[in-house]
Write a protein that binds this DNA or RNA. Structure first.
Lengths: 128, 128
DNA sequence: GTGTCATATGCGCTTCTGTGCATATGATAC
DNA sequence: GTATCATATGCACAGAAGCGCATATGACAC
């Protein structure tokens, strides 16, 4: 079985569909700035129900934009570091375009208040 | 009545939703290469029903990505030349990413066969 | 084992989107 | 006026997507 050209076209479309949602743009925007975040930080920042954020993260992951890993009880998320240059360019263009939005400036401010303290990349404080 | 920040966020989302469809990516891709096309050229190139292409062009227009104008019986379309730099960058990134797709190489070939002859930008041949 | 915290997911519901068909509109030629 | 060509659109239907609620899972502490 070989990878047909369709695979990559589908990936592009999953990516674009994933980006075509306000909540997911906000999430991607946060991840672009902070390179890794756990779910509770995103929940606190976006002020949306946990299940909603979780669902959207799942979609971003299925689209290949985001990867996650577990650290204790926390799930961490970052933009997939293995994204192709061109995929990354799409994400960057969307973020650049979204950067001016009032919502995102507000999110950025709230994120600073809700970031869990980290030591060498590891979250050290215990409470969400 | 003033333009709220929401307007521009909505525009971004309309744009992203408009781009999140295979047919519309193909159309945008063609318009990026040729700068202006009429509906019948796109229909012939994509080999899709006329009403389908027409609908998708309508969506691209509503999203502010495309503008159209009439020349006799023909409707011409081009990427909106007044797109902001950042909006244009998003489109460009998507096109660059889509460029490698087999579908688009095929479309580009078919378009060459179906382009109506032009003199100074005006379509001169009468038949679709 | 129990309890708790962080996160994910199944289900029902509603809303949005794309498609196909038929038909309408708009411009031109006669 | 009629006929024809190019394009748009109303409608019905099917499938997808997002939401809210409740609940499940997974890791840890005890």
């Amino acid at each position: 079985m070989h990878r047909s050209a369709y695979d990559t076209m589908d990936k592009l479309l999953r990516m674009l569909k994933a980006l075509a949602d306000p909540t997911r743009v906000r999430i991607i925007q946060l991840l672009q700035k902070r390179d890794e975040l756990c779910v509770c930080e995103i929940v606190d920042t976006l002020q949306l129900p946990q299940y909603s954020v979780s669902r959207h993260l799942g979609i971003l992951k299925a689209a290949g934009l985001v990867v996650d890993w577990r650290q204790g009880k926390w799930m961490h998320h970052r933009l997939d570091p293995d994204l192709s240059k061109q995929d990354r360019a799409v994400v960057a263009a969307v973020c650049a375009r979204a950067d001016a939005e009032a919502v995102h400036r507000q999110d950025a401010r709230r994120l600073r208040q809700h970031l869990r303290p980290r030591v060498k990349g590891e979250v050290v404080e215990r409470k969400c």
